[in-house]
Nucleic acid binder design. Sequence first.
DNA 1: ATGAAATTGAAATTCATTTTCAAAATATAA
DNA 2: TTATATTTTGAAAATGAATTTCAATTTCAT
Lengths: 138, 138
Amino acid sequence: MWEEILAKYFNEKGLKKSVKRKKFIDFFFKADKHFSVDELYEKLGKKVSRSTIYRTLKLLKECGLVIEQKFEEKNRRYEPLHLSYHHDHLICLKCGKIIEFNEKKIENIQKKVAEKYNFKMVFHKLEIYGYCEKCQKS
Amino acid sequence: MWEEILAKYFNEKGLKKSVKRKKFIDFFFKADKHFSVDELYEKLGKKVSRSTIYRTLKLLKECGLVIEQKFEEKNRRYEPLHLSYHHDHLICLKCGKIIEFNEKKIENIQKKVAEKYNFKMVFHKLEIYGYCEKCQKS
DNA sequence: ATGAAATTGAAATTCATTTTCAAAATATAA
DNA sequence: TTATATTTTGAAAATGAATTTCAATTTCAT
Ligand SMILES: [Mn+2]
Ligand SMILES: [Mn+2]
Ligand SMILES: [Zn+2]
Ligand SMILES: [Zn+2]
């Protein structure tokens, strides 16, 4: 799925499949988490430079395969979007664990709120911060 | 209300009431919007330095009179919280207009979602991005 | 294998925010 | 009021994540 989207995009833009890009993209889609650039840099054994990571993430953003998240941290996080299904996040303030959820009821009420203010919704973000099960105990 | 909280905080910390601080705080609470530091700097006729604005906002954050918002922009926005009532935001992608709303139903479902994942919610943020009434027409 | 075009990483740059520090303002005591 | 200790200020420097530059390297169609 994402391979096809990517192949199409690379073709259109005349991009080349380099060793570094492959290495990065393979890891990123396989791991399938919410990574910071630094984490990616470390996980790839520092074999792909931050410049290249930033640049490749930009490409993936452009073809809609990555969402850049600005959570309540200083640095951004990136998550692979295989199927572009929407979800929101529970984020642990202690360990950083991220739980994804999707609540149709909330989505529907959001639509009504937008309507009420004659506002044309394009996207939204809902983040719930607190403590995960583990961190409440310890 | 906020004057008392502030007075108490200043007293506890042994802070002094300077001309610049008064100027900034008076403007900020009277204007009552979601400002960036640059906007505040301009609105105050560049008579209060950015350093002092950042520093004073930090004080106000510490006594809970200001919320620092990280919207989908590079710079942060600050809003005075007179009564500390919670609300969420509709944000126009074209003109930057911010509409506040509070939907009890959403808040309740959020609590249920947190419970479902055994997550102890501390705070949340819900931002709906799109186009305001005016910007849809033009 | 050749050569044009794309990609790379290190270093430089950007830009919002924070920190430093010497001068100025403020509060308290004399 | 004046002296004195403490806090506050703004300019400039520092920080740090993200972006850009550029010369060297890699890719790929021929
Ligand atoms: Mn996610
Ligand atoms: Mn608000
Ligand atoms: Zn946790
Ligand atoms: Zn608008």
